[in-house]
Amino acid sequence: MSQALIFDMDGTLFQTDKILEISLDDTFNHLRSLDHWEGVTPIDTYREIMGVPLPIVWETLLPNHSIELREQTDSYFLKRLVTNIKNGKGALYPNVKEVFSCLKKNNISIYIASNGLTAYLKAIVEYYELNIWLTETYSIEQIESLNKSDLVRSIIDKHGITSGAVVGDRLSDIKAAKENGLVSIGCNFDFARKDELSQAAVVIDDLLEIESIIPTLTTFPVNELLLNNIGGK
């Protein structure tokens, strides 16, 4: 039996909010300098759609701009995100490394499945030295459909995962768990929404709560009623 926890990155492991506004401001200042944008940076709109793949982000934030300009903006934004990460302006959520260490001690493999791009995820993993615990990190750009459920399915198939959970803060993470026969653990963190979290098997307010869930992951399929009692959803 192969057990695993598959984590989202933004709003789950990494406090994206700490670098989001400054990176988006950098990007829209760049657009203003090129006369491609007027007005304030649409940070509130971005917060509303946080968690979707970046192509959809730019379709939403720049609906009247060309695909070429959106792609250029995406590239510039990614560079700003990576620079801000490497400059130490971001942060992990509390207890990430403690939970990772506990999972490894219990022989549970750890993966990341994120809507973030590969270079962005690599910058976070390297800066915070997460590879000590991670088996592998996956970006949505590795899946043609840009669908989180498909990304999780590819991880399950490649590594022969038979039980475990998907840990994340948004509905795409919860669906990815349910559609692949894994437990859905919803993180009640910065970008989470109550209506989405209500669909998770477990809702946690601190990553340390995962440690109490570990014993239930030894069976497949998992008893979600038991998990609800543990998570206090």
Rank of each mutant, 00 (worst) to 15 (best):
V96T: 15
Y93M: 09
G164C: 12
H36V: 00
C102S: 14
K233I: 09
Y76D: 06
L54Y: 01
Y76L: 13
I210W: 01
D190R: 11
S23E: 06
H65Q: 10
N107M: 07
L81S: 02
Y46R: 05
H30A: 07
D157E: 14
V99I: 06
N106V: 04
F77Y: 11
Y127P: 06
F220C: 12
L117A: 13
I230P: 03
G232S: 12
G39L: 07
F14M: 14
I132G: 11
L171V: 10
L5W: 01
D17C: 02
I56D: 15
W133F: 13
T83G: 14
I6Y: 03
S2F: 01
H159A: 02
I155P: 03
A200F: 06
S154F: 04
V52N: 05
K175V: 01
I156V: 14
V166C: 12
I161Q: 10
E209Y: 11
D74T: 15
N115E: 07
R47N: 12
H65F: 04
G116E: 03
E209D: 15
D173K: 15
I19A: 03
H36N: 10
K105D: 11
N180M: 08
L78K: 15
V40C: 01
G39D: 08
L171H: 09
I22E: 12
N180E: 02
E68Q: 12
V166Q: 05
T162A: 14
S198Y: 01
L69S: 10
Q15N: 15
F189G: 05
Q15M: 11
I110C: 08
N87M: 13
L208D: 09
S149E: 10
L171R: 13
T118D: 10
E98K: 10
V203F: 07
L121I: 15
N87T: 06
D26S: 13
N229D: 12
I143K: 12
E71Q: 15
I210G: 06
K178P: 06
V82R: 14
I210E: 02
T118C: 05
D169R: 04
D17K: 06
V202A: 02
V167T: 06
I214R: 04
